[in-house]
Nucleic acid binder design. Structure first.
Lengths: 334, 334
DNA sequence: ATGAAAGCGCTAACAC
DNA sequence: GTGTTAGCGCTTTCAT
């Protein structure tokens, strides 16, 4: 079906070995024959069969990227920054969305292993009940894995790049409290470790400021705009007197929440202050603009990709867990 | 290094052919031996080497997806819907962002061909000066290509799914004009065919309504939030008396533009009306909510993926160009 | 129902 | 500097 190395060899009256040598620059070839072969390659638009190369343990230079939802701007930006590093290093990424389903995640990873990716970058928090933790640990014996914003104990070639979610949330909430806010609610999906970390931060910061915590302050909602809206509806139905503050586990939730508040004519931040988390691009475009915790996703993504490539080059990081920088962004919504 | 079909065969005391038969269900095997082999496969967690299979012309079941920017919600949603169809059919997608660079696009496609994708889905408008048109035509002799929202004449296995951008823009502008708006500006990147189509729609609709067109009505800007903001700054600097309308070539531009207008305290839609294009999820979350043309991206993406898979199954569509549905969404910004 | 063996296109060790 | 050839792991005829 396709032009092969044998065809090239025959036509140039050399052996396949010689052709292979010029293709891979893997040995001495007389300049003249090299030119002849190169010319024919151009001419015939020949390109080597990746499967045959793969059979000989030549790297495919592709990385599996596992995220839960590409429709979420957070992941879109992470993927973008990973991709930029990968392109520079001639790696391709093969993208999988798990839609937050453990079974899907596992199936996708198994499929990718068959497709011979070099390893995985898995972005996003893990569920509290992480059904795949031991599976991933097992996978990491053979394939390098870089986790973004999560950590699994006991991994082999498994490394984490993460923002300290508890500390950053604590810092953000401290700032909010220092501005005089006392009634704070938290919107987030309690099925995910990231939300649990934030709840713990809330408890700590309240305690440290002599305020009390009540589980009514936590409103459970999924990671989407519409869930943010639903969360606010639920909160408003309680008729709690203004002012108060809503801290959201993600910008998506916050933006949905803000939309809902504004549609009720509620004044932000005078009546309800609101804060997001991540600093996705669209968080600065709401009116009022959204206060948030800048996770510097491009740094996260680039770091993860670089670490991954380092591992492939046998440069193993010293620590299994590496923290990435963040900053609190107080804009108009608080 | 890995467990192979030979190991299985030896351990089960059968030949590799038999093992291959049970793996692929490609021939009769005595039920008892089949069970024995299946059991060992589970036990050893065996999975066949995709390269070796690939060498035998077994499909890798992966599709190359080419987009210009995954950070753009339009593409993110397209990718998401493509992915959902692909997962259902056991296809993986391998994603490439070209950052609107023709050279990058070409390089990525060539790389993917080596990695033995089955073909390509290429989403998004093409540049007015499309440097890769003939390259893609050539590629389409061998690989199926489905284009989303663009069309290249003379392709072989090349098909297009698209929203009629000129007609939809004409419809949207008609509606705007029927509400009494007369001064209309258009923000968009004139390097791209999609913007050219919209400009043509604007010219037509103005003509049909006895209004005149002036090239000052076109403000050139890239596809990003910040460019939308810059476009509005430019427009405001002209001190044109309100009211007027800004039609934006994409929701991203419109959202940036709206943010800029609001930050100047300009009333939307009373002083400046604004309309976007695409109906990305975030367009309904601005305040005021953004009027836009709903391109039904999930339909676009799903259609494209289905057509692609059909082609692989040798079900070629009758038409090279297939139009997808749209609707005009008048929300609060107009 | 099962096995032997050829072949897919390439790489690399070895011989010359 | 170049050629010969043995794999790589699997599928698939062709015998049996």
């Amino acid at each position: 079906m396709c032009y092969t190395i044998y065809d090239l060899a025959k036509e140039c009256q050399v052996s396949v070995a010689t052709v292979s040598r010029v293709i891979n620059n893997s040995g001495p070839v007389k300049e003249k024959t090299r030119q002849k072969i190169l010319k024919l390659i151009k001419e015939k638009n020949y390109s080597p069969n990746a499967f045959a190369r793969g059979l000989n343990n030549i790297s495919m230079k592709t990385i599996g990227i596992i995220i839960s939802d590409i429709g979420n701007p957070f992941f879109a930006q992470i993927v973008k920054s990973i991709d930029s590093i990968c392109q520079k290093n001639q790696y391709s990424i093969i993208l999988c969305s798990t839609e937050n389903n453990s079974k899907t995640e596992r199936r996708e990873i198994e499929m990718l292993m068959q497709k011979q990716v070099e390893g995985f970058i898995i972005a996003g928090s893990r569920p509290v009940k992480d059904e795949n933790a031991s599976f991933l640990t097992e996978v990491s014996k053979k394939y390098p894995i870089v986790l973004i914003n999560s950590f699994i104990r006991g991994g082999h070639k498994m490394y984490s790049v993460m923002v300290d979610e508890k500390k950053s949330t604590y810092d953000a909430l401290s700032l909010i409290i220092s501005k005089g806010h006392k009634k704070i609610f938290l919107l987030g999906d309690t099925q995910w470790k990231t939300t649990v970390a934030k709840i713990n931060a809330l408890k700590d910061v309240l305690k440290d400021n002599g305020l009390s915590f009540d589980k009514e302050q936590i409103i459970n909602c999924k990671y989407s705009y519409s869930s943010g809206m639903a969360g606010v509806k639920e909160l408003l139905s309680r008729n709690i007197p203004f002012p108060y503050t809503i801290f959201c586990s993600s910008d998506m939730i916050a933006i949905g929440a803000m939309k809902e508040l504004l549609s009720h004519g509620i004044k932000i931040p005078e009546e309800v202050a609101i804060m997001g988390y991540s600093n996705t691009e669209n968080s600065s475009l709401t009116t009022p603009s959204l206060s948030t915790v800048d996770q510097k996703m491009h740094v996260l993504g680039e770091k993860a990709a670089k670490i991954f490539i380092d591992i492939l080059d046998d440069n193993y990081p010293i620590n299994k867990k590496m923290y990435s920088d963040y900053r609190i962004l107080m804009r108009e919504s608080t």
